[in-house]
Amino acid sequence: MKRFRYARPERLEAALRLLREPGAKALAGGTDLLTELKARTQEPELLVSVQGLQEPGLRGVREDERFVRIGALTTLRELEAHPLVRDKLPILAQAAQTVAMPQIRHVGTVGGNLMQQVRCWYYRHPFVRCWLKGGEECYAEEGLNHRHAIFGTSPCIAVHPSDLAPALIALDAQARVVGPDVEGELALEELYRLPDERSRARTVLGPADLILEILVPKPSEPTRVRGVYLKAMERATWSFAVVSVAARLSFEPGSEGVRARVGDARLVLGGVAGKPWRARDAEAALRGSPLTDEAIERAAEAAVAGAQPRAHNAYKIELTRALVKRALRSLLPP
């Protein structure tokens, strides 16, 4: 770790001002940032701890008329255990439960999870200076890409590791952000971008922008909405998603049981692209039709239609297909 200065403001304005100093970086639970500091993939001059902030809404889960509101400093553990999340947002509760292990869930925050850096084994390798670290080439493109992207075009083919992001995007969540570059409410989907020649950043936020809250709209007819989060891992627990699927369907009124017709559909994939990946063609394939075996097959095919496997990750296509099918089957209304 390089040496740094440290501050722990209580007021948001103070934090935002400090964050605008060159080389400043926000520190929440630190569970991701410390791994980067140790690996020297980040070398900030000043760490601004947001843990001391007294701003209302930053911690905990609440609801108002339209939204379930999740403070950015809410820990993953609080999130997974919160009754509002369990009752109203089971997709999110399921996703939170699959994240890491208790020791990380007790400390890691929702904001930090959404803003975490990729886990690519080249990026995190002390002997490698890859494109994402400011080097010339993506080592994974021609190298070992077992865990890398099958969707999207970017000079870096690392996948986004967050479990919360696909779940929240499936829930059509928004992020409330303050800062010099972005301010206001932003659809979470719009938060993410693929790195390109212009910028290596994976989100649209600047270094001094902070996520304050996540707003999840409440469905108008909760009984007609079903959702699930499935995650394929290399072992039973504490593994980043090899592939994950967040699926959320609403069923049209007046249609019941197996013949229930899908109204809106959201299918978001994790672990397959440099950002959470919406399977829009699959969503379209589902809308308006009953959830028959054929419809599920069609949706699963559509979900992987544009996939571009690399030397070592073609298996992710089969896995995605299987996981999408399994997710949709589990959503058949009783």
């Binding site: 084994w121 390798h125 002997f127 080592y139 190298g143 070992l144 077992h146």
Partner: peptide, 10 residues
């Protein structure tokens, strides 16, 4: 896993 092009364990 070793990257054969670089002799590098990843």
């Amino acid at each position: 896993l070793d990257d054969p092009r670089r002799g590098l364990p990843v």
